[in-house]
């Protein structure tokens, strides 16, 4: 009875999930680490870029223009163009994903930094804050909501895009989808797709929680307002 759903090629098949649990776990782990590494590197590159572009119109236009052009290149083409440089490796997928995340991250970090009220900046300067302390103790916390909004969008988009990495066998759950296609293996394709969307939702909720923990002052303010 239990074997039948594999033979009958059903959409939902617990026999598949239990017998291939190791394969599913491996794919999910690969998906998570490729996504996490890509978004982290993206953040590490986007932050200095946004700082560089802040207050300099020419630099900002160049940086935003360049990252937008990168975003225009379809993912399949991006991975294929990186192939001669990286070969079939996780580095290829990660580089592509980092380039895509930059568009969203730079834009949002820049918007966050520019939304810091000038009164807060003047008050901090008047209290004798240096540039570094001003950045980390005043500007960054106040820019956090916009930054986190960008991080959430970038992460969710990266989870979805990682599947294209199956082109070079480093696509996490995308690999299972690709392997299931030639034999029309419905259970494998559906399970991997559902896991992928679930991962995106989980990552989004996790970041929402992080933001909640990092910005306690926003809750005090709204509590008083109500």
């Amino acid at each position: 009875m239990a074997q039948n759903c594999l033979a009958a090629n059903d959409w939902i098949c617990w026999e598949y999930v239990s017998s291939r649990s190791q394969e599913l776990t491996d794919a999910t782990v690969q998906h998570v680490w490729i996504t996490a590494v890509s978004v982290l590197i993206g953040l590490l590159i986007a932050f200095p870029l946004a700082l560089l572009a802040r207050g300099r119109k020419g630099v900002a236009a160049t940086v935003l223009g360049f990252t937008t052009v990168l975003y225009t290149v379809p993912s399949l083409a991006m991975f294929a163009l990186l192939l001669p440089v990286f070969g079939l490796s996780a580095g290829l997928v990660i580089t592509g994903l980092v380039l895509y995340s930059l568009t969203i991250l730079v834009r949002n970090i820049l918007a966050g930094l520019e939304s810091v009220p000038s009164d807060a900046l003047e008050a901090a300067r008047g209290m004798g804050y240096g540039r570094i302390r001003l950045l980390f103790e005043v500007e960054l916390p106040l820019a956090l909501p916009a930054l986190m909004a960008g991080l959430r969008i970038a992460t969710v988009a990266t989870v979805a895009l990682t599947t294209i990495g199956s082109l070079v066998d480093h696509g996490g759950l995308g690999n299972l989808i690709e392997q299931g296609l030639p034999t029309f293996f419905k259970a494998q394709i559906l399970t991997a797709s559902v896991l992928c969307v679930a991962l995106a939702i989980a990552a989004d909720l996790l970041l929402l929680g992080v933001q909640w923990l990092l910005t306690p002052w926003t809750r005090i303010r709204t509590a008083k307002a109500v």
Binding site: I153, V156, A157, V159, A160, L161, T163, I164, S166, G174, I177, E178, G180, L181, F184, F185, K186, I189, L190, A192, S193, C196, V197, A200, I201, D204
Partner: peptide, 18 residues
């Protein structure tokens, strides 16, 4: 539009193909 970004294009096309 944010929901749209979360859905993997490849998965949807693969599901159509089966």
């Amino acid at each position: 539009s944010n929901v749209g970004r979360a859905i993997p294009v490849f998965a949807v096309l693969a599901l159509f193909m089966v």
